[in-house]
Design a protein around this nucleic acid. Structure first.
Lengths: 217, 217
DNA sequence: GATTACAGTGAACGACTGTACACTCAACAG
DNA sequence: CTGTTGAGTGTACAGTCGTTCACTGTAATC
């Protein structure tokens, strides 16, 4: 609810004159931010155009200057959150030396990004299973994510000989563990983080423990 | 939408006289059924009391004869779906001979139950991450499910020596794979079922492949 | 057979919804 | 300096929402 204030009034005090499109971009962002705030404990479908507009300090009809409908705002919100997700992947794609090193580093990156962007990840996990067009858009994004991971995995010596199908199976499995961990982090009470990341590491370790013994059937 | 018709008019034609509470129980069920129908492609929070009542062939005010609010209906819906879930567990808890046998049997049971109760499982997976009181209720139920599974797993020779924490970790992992599989089944296009169940079996096999080599750290 | 309990009705309410339309007024282009 | 553009305003309308209240008709009770 912190960004529900009228940004313009704040900006007008500052000296720099803002261009027209810059202002527009700013209220657009205010709409996205208030929507994300309101989504903290409710599904997207229960959001109304009016309350998002009001939250951003706008009259309802002004909403249409930025989005043709709430659904269009939802799509923009998916784009914003997947940008965060891609940022996380980029951060995590480092030194693929050992399994164990990769595991704890990945989990640490995940933890850090979730805590720094709780709103985004809450939106992502909530709407992923919420049905409707947003769920589909998020599903596509996650499948791309999983595909990228499969490529990364193929670099490991043990996995180089694996069939593509099995590689994707493994990647999907890892992604599902990550999603579970994200949800656990978002539902966690304060102080529970180490327990959750520890569990996540264990789960990944167990999975990768089976890899050397895998035989396609 | 099939059970959106007025049941009473159908019943009145039949010869058997229905008792009062039996009738009440029947319209209550009609309310639950239409709600479940409407939830096929929308989150629970977007459901209105009026459309559920109308779908069941009732005037809005009659809704209150059965539930004090939509949230109360939601809780009843969770109870109904978890009954289905428990039925599935009971069916799956058979002959724990070998890993492989248990895997394919469990996946087959899962597949069968999902296909026979798509509405229930759709509701379950949707609202699990939807936030609000329903998500919490479902979370509790799933944790019980996972706990039961941990107990079952403890019967296997290899797992008898495992610490309780690790056993729960394994059970959670298996449950998360099952939930992923459920979502995949519900999103599947016709004919994709074998591919999905095959993947699910592979994922479980890979996990259990690591079990003999597990060392707590 | 008279009385009670109660599932379901129907009208009405105040609040909220998305959207249409005519408007203001400041940043912009010429 | 002048005319245009467009982000934001204000009013208005037709729907839908949850909830209220007084009601009807019939199964259940005595």
């Amino acid at each position: 609810m912190s960004n529900a204030v009228d940004i313009r009034t704040l900006e007008d005090v500052s000296e720099e004159p803002v261009s027209r499109q810059e202002r527009k971009q700013r209220t657009r962002q205010a709409l996205l931010d208030t929507a994300l705030d309101l989504l903290a404990d409710r599904p997207f479908a229960s959001l109304s155009l009016r309350e998002v507009a009001k939250g951003a300090g706008l009259v309802p009809t002004a909403f249409y200057r930025h989005f043709a409908s709430m659904e269009e705002l939802g799509v923009a919100l998916v784009e914003e959150t997947t940008r965060t997700l891609r940022g996380m992947i980029r951060s995590a794609r480092t030194d693929p030396d050992t399994y164990q090193g990769m595991i704890s580093a990945s989990v640490a990156t995940l933890h850090q990004f979730v805590r720094a962007n709780e709103d985004h990840f809450r939106f992502l996990t909530r709407e992923r299973y919420g049905g409707g067009p947003l769920a589909r858009a998020i599903g596509v994004e996650l499948r791309m994510f999983s595909g990228d991971l499969a490529i990364d995995l193929a670099r490991f010596a043990t996995l180089r000989s694996w069939p593509t199908d099995d590689l994707h199976m493994l990647a999907d499995l890892i992604v599902s563990v990550m999603l579970t961990t994200i949800v656990e982090l978002l539902e966690a009470r304060p102080g529970e983080d180490p327990k959750i990341t520890g569990m996540a590491e264990k789960r990944l370790r167990l999975i990768l423990l089976g890899v050397p013994h895998w035989k396609t059937r």
